[in-house]
Amino acid sequence: MTGFLNLEGKRALITGGTKGTGGATADLFRSLGARVLVTARSRPESLPEDLFVAADLKTAEGAIAVSDAVNDRLGGADIIVHMLGGSSAPGGGFAALDDAEWENELNTNLFPAVRLDRLLVPQMVAQGHGVVVHVTSIQSILPLPESTTAYAAAKAALSTYSKSLSKEVAPSGVRVMRVSPGWIETEGSVHLAERLAAQANTDYEGGKKIIMDSLGGIPLGRPAKPGEVANLIAFLASDRAASITGAEYVIDGGTVPTV
């Protein structure tokens, strides 16, 4: 991969970039020559302080802190990867979601990208180039009513916002794309599969099957690896994809059953 792509000298911000797919993307970007700043709420001991900014991007103040760090440490951004996302909403369907749960899902999955783009994309427009990758989810078109209604709605809003932004800034040389993963075998999903396996008195592979069955099956027979999603993001961020903007790339092993 490193022989095919080149991000030499590119200044990149990756939110949620300390572990899982975000961590894999940050590692790959660095191996391709990019200067990478990552942000999360807490810094892993393995990550030097100069490569990290602590912030709660669920707040406007957190977005400002990250924007200031990008300008102070990198002198601006050439690439932004909005990896941050997730859900802590309870199961139980729509009736279990009060206003606080809805606000939390939007503050986690939509507003961090909106706020950071508002702060950083104008600089990309002024410099005449830049790449923004919004990581959405197949849940935006394949929600699970029992547990992901609010998360799916927030990701759908992010997808629509991303498309609109792409149309606005493309004439200025700024490319905006969406990457829509299905189930990714991150540390968190491994723990979930292990927990489900223990509850069902089966092994890890059995736990994985429970998750895949809940998604309606994965024709490829397995979840994506974090590095596979990182490879797609790196390609889209590179000059190899110079004419791609406004598009959504699904990486789900065939989970979505429709065209």
Rank of each mutant, 00 (worst) to 15 (best):
I141L: 06
I141H: 01
A150T: 14
A60V: 10
A154N: 01
S137P: 12
R115G: 10
S243Q: 04
G207N: 07
G9D: 12
L196E: 06
T258A: 12
Q139T: 14
H82K: 02
G254N: 06
V256G: 10
P145L: 05
T186G: 08
G93Q: 01
E205L: 15
G182N: 08
A26L: 05
S189M: 15
L196P: 00
G3V: 13
A55T: 10
R195C: 00
K208I: 15
T245G: 06
G246R: 07
M83Q: 14
P145F: 11
T108I: 14
R118I: 14
A200W: 00
P122W: 04
A247F: 00
P122T: 14
I244G: 09
L215A: 07
K163H: 13
G246W: 07
R35Y: 14
F4Y: 09
A34G: 12
V53C: 04
S31I: 02
Y151E: 02
T15V: 14
T59L: 13
E187P: 11
G22D: 08
V190Y: 11
D72A: 15
L196H: 04
S166P: 02
D252F: 08
L106W: 10
W102G: 09
G3W: 00
A150R: 02
A247T: 14
E228A: 04
D99I: 14
L28C: 12
T186S: 12
E168C: 12
V229Y: 00
A156L: 11
E61P: 03
K19W: 05
S147C: 08
T148P: 01
A237G: 02
V174L: 08
R30G: 11
E187T: 15
K209C: 02
V121S: 01
A170G: 13
T2S: 14
T136H: 01
S88H: 11
G128N: 06
I79Y: 05
A89Y: 10
G254R: 09
F235S: 03
R240E: 14
Y161E: 05
A200F: 01
L236G: 01
K10C: 09
Q127N: 12
R240A: 15
D56G: 03
G216M: 09
S140P: 00
G91W: 01
W183K: 02
I80C: 13
P48L: 12
I251K: 00
M212T: 07
D252M: 10
I138S: 06
A12S: 12
A77W: 04
G92V: 14
A65M: 07
T255R: 09
